[in-house]
Amino acid sequence: MKDNSRRGFMGKAFGAVAGVGAIASLFAMKKTWDPLPSVKAAGFTTLDMSAYKENELVVEKWRGKPIFVLKQSKEMLDTEDKNMSQLTGKTTEAMDKKRLIRIGDAEYMVTIGLCTHLGCIPGYNQDKKSFLCACHGGMYDDTGMVTKSPPPRGLDIPPFKIKGNILVLGEEGPEYKKMKETGITL
């Protein structure tokens, strides 16, 4: 009996030490797979917004991702787009144009250029003023809102801060925080 309880204790002690070791190694393994600090500190992208032309899509780069910049023409602003927001369930009127960023006198669409479905890059059709993702046929209008499934939400807007004519990507300005709060972007 005495022997048994000693064995039992030895077994439990061994198991406990091995268990702690196993959890500690799993933790180390998980952390080893994490993105490196140098990757995380990939920094900021600065865009001079006066250089863009109306209805002409320019693809910039931020943290390895493509960024769509589309300056809106008057015609684009006047057209009410038929889109949908599966994310918020809000109607077209409530969402339309609110995704645009106003800098000086002009309105810009600035979004991450990856389809919110599975991350392909949609192509822009200048005449139709809409984006088409070739992977699974999703479509967006000229403000980056979804007009055809399967994308679950409009193109994501990267964190931004307005500094006069300059837009800094990667920093959260008050305009971006407001968009996040109101559910215009994630």
Partner: peptide, 29 residues
């Protein structure tokens, strides 16, 4: 690589952290 790793975000779950963890970066690099 982009599309398949994005599957792990689990749609509306938005587990973007998991996707970035699998990739070790914001994009495949």
């Amino acid at each position: 690589g982009m599309v398949i790793t994005n599957l792990f975000s689990g749609g509306s779950l938005h587990a973007d952290g998991l996707v970035e963890w699998i990739r070790g970066d914001y994009v495949p690099a």
